[in-house]
């Protein structure tokens, strides 16, 4: 962080999509703050339109997420389920994991420690 940056803004939100085996891997990095968090739902639903067998959402570099960003995860999960696919989460930090626990989204969304575990668990599922 440079001296001119506002404190605690976090890294800019970045969302990358990669095709891996049977899944589309969506890596969400940085801070999903209130002014940009709707991008999570928009991009995930965009990925779901292609009807991948599974969407694996890699949260290992996600620093912050608000309720709107959580809503994007849920919206994409529901779209995947409606079309017979799945959406799982990978590697949230302790802070993000706590948000998922508090909202009980950990009961709706499967969470895996790393990408290989998620890919193995969803292969053929």
């Amino acid at each position: 962080m440079s001296a001119s940056d506002p404190p605690r803004n976090g890294a800019p939100l970045q969302i990358d999509v990669e095709r891996r085996e049977h899944a589309s891997v969506v890596r969400i990095c940085g801070a999903a703050t209130m002014d940009v968090s709707s991008e999570i739902g928009r991009r995930l639903v965009e990925v779901a339109v292609a009807k991948p067998h599974c969407i694996v959402v890699d949260l290992s570099a996600l620093e912050f997420i608000d309720s709107n960003g959580l809503g994007g995860l849920v919206a994409a999960y529901l779209k995947q389920r409606r079309q017979g696919g799945s959406l799982v989460l990978v590697g949230p930090t302790a802070a993000i994991h706590d948000v998922l626990d508090v909202t009980r989204l950990n009961q709706l969304l499967s969470i895996y420690p790393d990408l290989s575990a998620a890919l193995a668990a969803t292969r053929g599922a």
């Binding site: 739902g41 809503g71 989204l105």
Partner: peptide
Amino acid sequence: DPTAPENIERPSGRGIMLIRAY
């Protein structure tokens, strides 16, 4: 309550409970 089973799949409505929790 967004954590209630009947509401858990709603995409919105978690802001107030997060404030209360944190």
